[in-house]
Design a protein around this nucleic acid. Structure first.
Length: 705
DNA sequence: CAGTGAGCGAGCTTCCGCTTGACTT
């Protein structure tokens, strides 16, 4: 018979804690939530005051059975789930489901898995906070209502099996709006002027403080420089310090692993999970930047031993994230003394990142000296400025520098030669390069996570799943976008002569970035039109405020949900009953010149399609699917009509028809009931019989091998 | 492995947030 049973959420945590507690304690895991709203139907009794209908999911029956057995035999059950809204609810569900009694149940919490923290928690038990539990029930019920009432509207109005929800729909909105910004972006050109001066054989690279608006202006300026002299107007030196970034949270780990290792967020999480389960790092789903005292001391010792005393600086970071619940520590190595680990290549890389980030967070600031030289022009008011930075003490930079999302941080600053005020400088070369303003960047998975975190939407445990959901529903996809060639102009002045060159560059190319699909755009626009409150970027922040009042006992949760429902449900009814002539998201392109019938594009049962005619016509309408690279919002009438040219019959080969069409796996040639995929460079609209026969023969040869 | 789609019809799809394995290729 066991004296004490402790229940935590994670089995890895259970194992660790059991070691701290000794023989009188058995530690088990609940594996997260053990009860949830009924899987089928709404799972909420709206008529009876929004009473949740809970059930134990099939895959949790075994766990609950085991826990029940152990609880029965224990003198005291210690509910040790996380100290946040969800954790409190887990304890409450355990209390109810296991049939526990107040006299032999205690609720304990700790934020770090250290012996002291756990023993201290055992000394200071409390009871379940029912207000906090109610806040969780409100959160759960609200999410179910929003998701299960919105999704069916989409099934009826757009396409079956779609989904909408408080988190995913806003995530899609972020992507759709960014794509629109990119589409509407007009880049503006200006001339960036850079001059190279010389001083005792050293070069000083300086930029004109103003960009010039036109080529004429740039030419006139270079012309003027031919006769100008240059002198140092000012030399300014000032110390600059740089501080290390806070230790990793789930979100920042995902961002850095994406920037530095190229990991998608799902991969980062599964690699981190393995590191956690093998005891190498602390818990990987956290919004806290806090390190335990133990970790801070261990880091200090490591820094001192490896780099010396002057590199030590112990720091405590505080969370600025909206809605953070801080039930755990930051993500850090369990043992700072393990600089490297054994494991897969991915595990090693991720561990290395975590170790460096953690150790750097406990190191001294970097000290730099920044020099700014202002150079005057004898015959013009404008000035050149050269900036240089010299590292005086590297501090934390010795081990780690946080990455940036800024793709064109092309500033190269280094040591500048010593110059004095009023000193004359010789100009060796000046170039005026045409530069264009940049469109906003598309999101990577990790950048979207950062945006969601900024908006206070979603939790560490849901960032990666949310990113998967919106891709699985085909609202967004990771795409490679081909860039376009652009001409730009470079004027340069050297040895008293001005040269004028045209250069080309590729712009707008993107790799593995999130781009909305037609379905994503149509669903988004529909939701924003009919449910603007739910799609509002502040919706989550606002409901969080009301969850907070429930947690503080100032508001009754069922009343709060009832108020919401009274406002929300009528909008669902209105959207369901709305009647229009056209399907949601449909776009009319014009009339078909052959038949005079209207041509439109819209979302069909199987995705984006073109339609000629309407069901009211005597003849049935004609249909064709859009190609992969086409979209409802940009396709033209011509392009749409062309889709009806397929399937094409090219002619006969061996007395059988050769046809070309586009199928599920792209364009193909069909002959004698055999299929041959078209290579990328072949176009199904223009390929001829001769080329098709070559493809057929190639395929035969390959099949024979 | 290679399009489909406009109406008889049954029943299905779906949320967010806690947690891991148990599956396949």
């Amino acid at each position: 018979m066991q004296k004490n049973l402790v229940i935590v959420e994670s089995p890895a945590k259970a194992k660790t804690i059991e070691k701290f507690l000794g023989k009188d304690f058995k530690v088990m895991s609940s594996y997260g939530h053990i009860r949830d709203l009924k899987k089928k139907d709404l799972g909420i009794d709206i008529e009876n005051g929004f009473t949740p209908l809970y059930e134990i999911p099939a895959d949790k029956k075994d766990v609950v059975g085991e826990l029940k057995k152990s609880a029965k035999g224990a003198e005291m059950v210690w509910l040790a789930s996380d100290e946040d809204r969800e954790g409190e609810a887990i304890s409450w569900h355990l209390y109810q489901t296991l049939g526990l009694k107040p006299e032999n149940t205690k609720r304990i919490v700790f934020h770090e898995i250290t012996k002291d923290a756990i023993l201290n928690a055992i000394e200071n038990p409390r009871t379940i906070d029912t207000h906090l539990v109610d806040a969780q029930q409100a959160r759960r019920v609200l999410d179910r209502i929003v998701g299960f009432e919105l999704s069916p509207v989409l099934w009826r109005k757009v396409k079956p099996a779609l989904s909408a929800g408080r988190v995913q729909s806003v995530a899609v909105r972020v992507i759709v709006e960014r794509e629109r910004e990119i589409q509407n972006f007009k880049s503006e050109a200006s001339y960036r002027v850079v001059a190279i001066f010389t001083k005792d054989g050293n070069e000083i690279k300086a930029e004109l403080t103003k960009r010039l608006k036109s080529k004429e202006e740039a030419q006139a300026f270079l012309e003027k420089l031919k006769t100008a002299t240059f002198s140092v107007d000012d030399v300014e030196k000032k110390p600059v310090t740089k501080s290390p970034a806070a230790p990793f949270t789930t979100s920042t780990l995902q961002q850095e692993a994406s920037r530095k290792l190229g990991f998608p967020v799902g991969l980062t999480m599964s690699v981190a999970q393995r590191l956690y389960e093998s005891g190498k790092i602390t818990y990987m789903r956290t919004d806290s930047v806090n390190l335990s005292g133990l970790a801070i001391n261990a880091s200090k010792a490591e820094v001192e031993a490896a780099y010396g005393k002057e590199y030590v600086k112990s720091r405590k970071f505080s969370t600025k994230t909206k809605g953070a619940q801080e039930a755990h520590e930051a993500i850090r190595p369990t043992y700072m003394s393990e600089h490297t680990i054994t494991g897969s290549a991915q595990e090693k890389k991720l561990y290395d990142l975590i170790w460096k980030r953690t150790i750097a967070s406990q190191m001294a600031d970097a000290q730099l000296e920044r020099t700014v030289i202002t150079i005057g022009i004898s015959n013009d008011e404008m000035r050149f400025v050269a900036e240089g930075e010299v590292l005086k003490f590297d501090g934390f930079l010795h081990v780690y520098l946080e990455g940036t999302d800024d793709e064109d941080a092309d500033r190269e600053e280094g040591l500048l030669p010593a110059v004095k005020k009023d000193e004359l400088l010789a100009l060796s070369e000046t170039t005026a390069t045409e530069r264009f303003t940049q469109r906003p960047p598309r999101y990577t998975e990790a950048a979207l996570v950062r945006k969601l975190e900024e908006l206070g939407i979603g939790r560490p445990s849901t960032y990666a799943p949310t990113i998967s959901t919106i891709q699985n529903r085909e609202y967004v996809q990771k795409s490679n976008i081909e860039g376009v060639q652009r001409q730009y102009n470079v004027l340069s002045l050297k040895n008293g002569k001005i040269s004028d060159k045209e250069k080309t560059e590729t712009v707008g190319a993107d790799k593995n970035k999130l781009v909305p699909t037609d379905i994503g755009v149509v669903v988004n626009d529909f939701l924003i039109q009919y449910f603007p409150d739910i799609l509002d970027y502040n919706f989550t922040a606002n409901v969080e405020k009301s969850f907070d009042s429930i947690a503080e006992g100032k508001k009754e949760w069922k009343k709060s949900i009832s108020d919401f429902y009274e406002r929300f449900h009528p909008t669902v009814e209105a959207a369901t009953n709305m009647q229009t002539d056209h399907k949601v998201g449909e776009r009319l392109l014009g009339d078909d010149p052959k038949t005079g019938k209207p041509v439109s594009v819209k979302i069909g049962r199987f995705g984006p399609m073109v339609q000629i005619g309407t069901p009211d016509d005597e003849e049935k309408p004609q249909f064709a699917s859009l190609q992969k690279d086409q979209s409802i919002s940009t396709i033209t009438l011509e392009e749409a009509l062309k889709l009806f040219d397929l399937p094409r019959t090219l002619g006969e080969y061996e007395e059988k028809n050769v046809t070309v069409a586009v199928g599920r796996f792209g364009p193909y040639v069909k002959h004698d009931n055999k299929f041959v995929s078209l290579p990328k460079e072949e176009d199904p609209f223009s390929i001829d019989l001769a080329k098709a026969i070559i493809l057929i023969e190639d395929k035969r040869k390959k099949d024979r091998q």
